[in-house]
Amino acid sequence: MKSNPAALLGLTVLTGCFVGLLAVAPALAQDAPARTQDAPASCEVPAYLLTTESTLPKVEHAVKSGLPLDILVVGSRSSTIFTSEASAYPARLQAVLKQMLPKAVIDVSVELQIKKTAEEVAVDLVKLVEVKKPTLVIWQTGTYDAMRSIDPEDFRGAVGEGVVALKEAGADVVLMNLQYSPRTETMISASPYLDSMRVVAQQYDTPLFDRFAIMHHWNDSGDFDLFSPTRGLDLARRVHDCIGRALAKFVIEAARVDPAQQN
């Protein structure tokens, strides 16, 4: 794969800035101002960002047939919170899905693929499915490729191969793109990778959870100040909670499941 050697010089700094919004270090929280008087985040997301024409037939079958719904999140460090995994978005996704589908048996597990490109992750996806046997794989990717300036065409090809492999292995797939950070948007070019994931999603009829656009909306609307580096763990927890809630709604929408029928 092609990469830009100059981009590697700033990789360490970029990693701290880009990933730090959702995986903040505990020391940062000690210096953060108290936010107990702040109003809770609304978590509102425009309807078009939680709507998809692509479906999750295996998730639909599992829910409607009373089968276990096992979800595997394949992600990077931004799928965690260092000091509280229970507050990270995969755990929040599981909690919200259980609230929405109280009769379903739901389990969400996480497979971290830290500092790996989409091509490197794609190689192991089939093995993960064989071992975990998930109904649904949520593949969070693009961040590390953008940091390393991997050729967007190579990135698109790797994501496409990964999606095909996952589906052939028997799992539904949701793609999740990069997180949005106003602090790093001038340092790296996210657009080619966002566009590549949209192309793959359309080509392989796969739901794309547009985390980038959702977080951009929250920042622009004032729900979250994603520019400030001093918000600490409280910000991370609230953003993760909102991502988990939005993702649960997205999965339900793509599975064409009516939660009201589960009560």
Rank of each mutant, 00 (worst) to 15 (best):
K2D: 04
S3P: 01
N4L: 03
A6K: 15
G10C: 05
T15F: 12
T15C: 05
C17G: 00
C17I: 11
G20P: 03
A23P: 00
A23Q: 11
V24I: 13
A29I: 03
T36K: 06
D38E: 07
C43F: 06
E44R: 13
A47M: 06
Y48V: 02
L50R: 07
P57V: 02
P57M: 04
K64H: 05
G66F: 12
V74C: 12
G75V: 02
S79L: 00
A86W: 02
L93S: 09
L93C: 11
L93P: 13
A95P: 06
K98E: 13
M100L: 15
L101D: 00
P102V: 13
P102Y: 05
K103P: 00
V105K: 00
E111Q: 14
V121M: 14
L125Q: 07
T135I: 10
Y144G: 03
D145V: 07
S149P: 00
R156M: 11
R156L: 05
A158W: 01
A158R: 01
L166E: 04
V174P: 06
P182V: 08
T184W: 04
I188E: 06
S191R: 15
D195T: 09
D195F: 10
T206I: 11
L208K: 09
D210Y: 05
F212P: 02
F212V: 02
M215D: 13
N219P: 06
G222F: 10
D225E: 07
L226T: 13
P229C: 13
T230W: 04
G244Y: 13
R245I: 09
A246T: 09
K249G: 15
A254G: 10
Q261M: 15
Q262Y: 04
